[in-house]
Simulated assay, not measured.
Amino acid sequence: MTIATHSVLSGTAQRPLYIGLMSGTSLDGVDGVLADYATGAGQVLAHASCGFDAPLRAELLALNSPGGTDELHRAALAANALARSYATVVAQLLAQARVPATAVAAIGAHGQTVRHRPQLFDGTGYTLQLGNPALLAELTGITVVADLRSRDVAAGGQGAPLVPAFHQGVFGRGGQTVLALNLGGIANLSVLRADGSVLGFDCGPGNALMDGWCQQHLGLDFDENGRWAASGRVLPALLAALLDEPFLRQPPPKSTGRDLFHRAWLDAHLQSFAGARREDVQATLAEFTAAACANAARAFGGAAQELLVCGGGALNGHLLDRLGALLPGIAVTTTAGRGLPPQQVEAAAFAWLARQCLLGLPGNLASVTGAHGPRILGAIYPA
């Protein structure tokens, strides 16, 4: 089996073009990039995105919570719908770049996380991303690399975050410590140290709680530029209760998701604040995200003087302002100033991970995930 797979992929792996597809815990849709690795350092040639329609988004959110009926059937149908959304983005990327599918070595497809429990009480763990990579390979005619987290978990790691190794290659600066903060549904921090070593971990909620509150009370997918949060006042007692979450005090390696930071978790904290204004709750949720990230940066960032922000939260001006206020002495900017727009970073990372897999190279960092050592990540579905 190994020999046959190598025969199929030996030529493919040498092609310089790779596609990365990311649909994260924010559940807002799919981001994709086409990256060229002809010179070793990837260059993004095209970027495309596709939002989830309301029924798919609602189903993916429901599948994040246990206890539903006929979950296996529903999950399979959602995975098929997700593969078709992925294929739409792939077609857009190829059209933009004017390249044929045959020129692309592989697609790195993250899939949609619906469970992330790498450490259970009995010492076992798992991570589950919905997706149908076989269908995606059929729809696109391109080799697909998927299930990129499970091998790290099997090796004793968290399976997340996987992007710090990519961050180091793109944003690291010799002799300086740089921080990279991804603000998706969940926030994760990469500490790119001056000596070349890397630390990375999930540091709390990103947009998930803010977006959920905004959707419930304004009927909008997100709080554009943080204007609604900026109109409210932070509730100190609520903020203190949110920041008392034990996960935030846990040392890395660590990772989290909607398994922890979900609506029921928030509702439990809001029971004592039933009369609070909605905009004040939103202001407090924004401050919670900013404070959790800032606390992690102070605790583990060493002498860093630069924080590069990516992900959807990088477009929230109010959130960036609060990060800047909480981190005096650290320049808070987006990754755009370093040549990679915020909404392209994670997709580009999964293009890189697909390339690592096809070339037989590790994709994880044991210093980040806590795995027993470097591992080749991903399952390959040849075109």
Rank of each mutant, 00 (worst) to 15 (best):
358 L>V: 08
266 L>C: 12
135 L>H: 10
42 G>E: 14
176 Q>S: 12
185 G>L: 10
93 L>T: 14
85 S>P: 05
322 R>I: 02
74 R>D: 00
44 V>W: 02
350 F>W: 11
269 H>Q: 07
303 A>V: 09
223 D>I: 10
363 G>Q: 11
80 N>E: 14
305 Q>I: 06
355 R>A: 14
153 V>Y: 02
360 G>Y: 02
7 S>H: 14
180 A>P: 01
104 V>I: 14
145 V>N: 02
193 R>K: 10
253 P>I: 08
204 G>V: 11
68 G>S: 02
335 T>R: 03
318 H>Y: 15
199 L>C: 07
287 E>W: 01
368 V>S: 09
21 L>H: 01
302 G>N: 04
351 A>M: 15
313 G>N: 09
118 P>V: 06
79 A>K: 00
335 T>D: 04
371 A>N: 03
182 N>R: 08
379 A>G: 15
336 A>H: 08
360 G>E: 00
347 A>L: 06
309 V>E: 05
343 Q>Y: 00
12 T>G: 02
122 D>V: 14
174 G>R: 12
223 D>S: 05
118 P>E: 01
281 V>M: 03
13 A>N: 05
77 L>R: 14
223 D>G: 03
201 F>V: 09
232 G>A: 09
220 L>Y: 08
314 A>K: 10
9 L>I: 14
19 I>P: 06
225 N>C: 06
244 D>C: 10
233 R>P: 04
12 T>K: 10
211 D>P: 00
30 V>I: 12
7 S>Y: 11
100 P>N: 01
267 D>M: 12
112 Q>S: 09
237 A>K: 10
46 A>N: 01
182 N>A: 06
160 A>R: 10
350 F>A: 13
259 D>R: 05
375 R>I: 10
